[in-house]
Design a protein around this nucleic acid. Sequence first.
DNA 1: TCCGTAATGAACGGTTGTGTTCATAATTTT
DNA 2: AAAATTATGAACACAACCGTTCATTACGGA
Lengths: 206, 206
Amino acid sequence: MYPESPAARGEAAAVPLRRRGEALESAIFEATLHQLTTVGYARLTMEGVAACAQTGKAALYRRWPSKEALVMDALRACLPPARTAPDTGSLRGDLIELVTRMRTAMFSETGAAVRAIMNELDHQRAHAFLEIVVARVVEPTTRLIAEVLARGELRGEVRPESVTPLVTDVVPALMIYRIKMGCGVLGQPDAEAIVDEVLLPIVQLP
Amino acid sequence: MYPESPAARGEAAAVPLRRRGEALESAIFEATLHQLTTVGYARLTMEGVAACAQTGKAALYRRWPSKEALVMDALRACLPPARTAPDTGSLRGDLIELVTRMRTAMFSETGAAVRAIMNELDHQRAHAFLEIVVARVVEPTTRLIAEVLARGELRGEVRPESVTPLVTDVVPALMIYRIKMGCGVLGQPDAEAIVDEVLLPIVQLP
DNA sequence: TCCGTAATGAACGGTTGTGTTCATAATTTT
DNA sequence: AAAATTATGAACACAACCGTTCATTACGGA
């Protein structure tokens, strides 16, 4: 059915026909993120997730009482842990490394699912996700940017009063906007352009 | 029913009980924008728009074959015409006036509906709206910003190589992001902060 | 091997929404 | 005034989905 048959894999050991426990939950979480990305939270259905995970609705309802609970657990399980700020020796180097990482994260499957959720935060039905998005995505991002800028300040490269909440929002905002406007991967500015055209002019000492 | 009765308005002239033609279409467009804002495009239904406009589905289907066609016509009808760039005599003044206007537009009913559509451009079902959003919202905005910056350049206030497509995207991107993150009206940066903290440092000559 | 547990696929009653049709009534045009 | 047009509200068959239940089967552990 879903795992390959023993014959197909050429293995002597018996391979289970059914997933159970954590293996099934992983598949369900993966299907959940995929559905978030393709149809959004508004149109995500338990039936759709079950079909995508190649299981039955009953297996979902045994674990989660609602679509919201399922999506919340899927996000919790798949969001990456906090990262440390890069330290390349120069402000520009740090910023380019950081923006490159942000870019990679945004184009990952988890990143795409998070963007889908963020698109719906304006609506009542997705409001419950604001907290997790802020705590696990927005604030860690802001913190990393602020950390890099603080180190740059110690090196005498950053204008102290330039680091405001507005400024630390600029890069994620810009990247999300460009993705949304349909620029695609090829149309995305590279990390160097973002740093050199936007961020450095704002923060660096003349 | 929906228009007030003659007695309620104290008028001698007979007031129609039913809206027809353009009056009905205006009501339907208004209901459409309202539904976009409250439930989003994904969950907008013909039935919901009809109920909100206090009319019947048949009146909608007589005019529009689908939800997409209705929403497209509603946007076309309600998007404001192009504006001219402000000219206050200084770069900073122009930018503040422009950002103030953008802010007003974003918090208008039409603006909220456009933001709702923009949130869904990542998804296949709303992809048809990319063109109108770019042509009637994004490009006019970008053009105004570029115009103000060009005038600033003539005045010797703007660093010529600073005006890039990335830079002209910064302000709308930032405003949309802040709204989405639930800052609400009170948490929005005022136009002066956006101009002084973000845009001017990028573009102005030292 | 046996037993308890969990997965599977199907079915169910109920709700919501689609696109259509229709009888009636309101309104405009002739 | 009569005819034509359009709005209104209701109803319809169908599809999709919800949340639940169930019989059967697979699987892990004792």
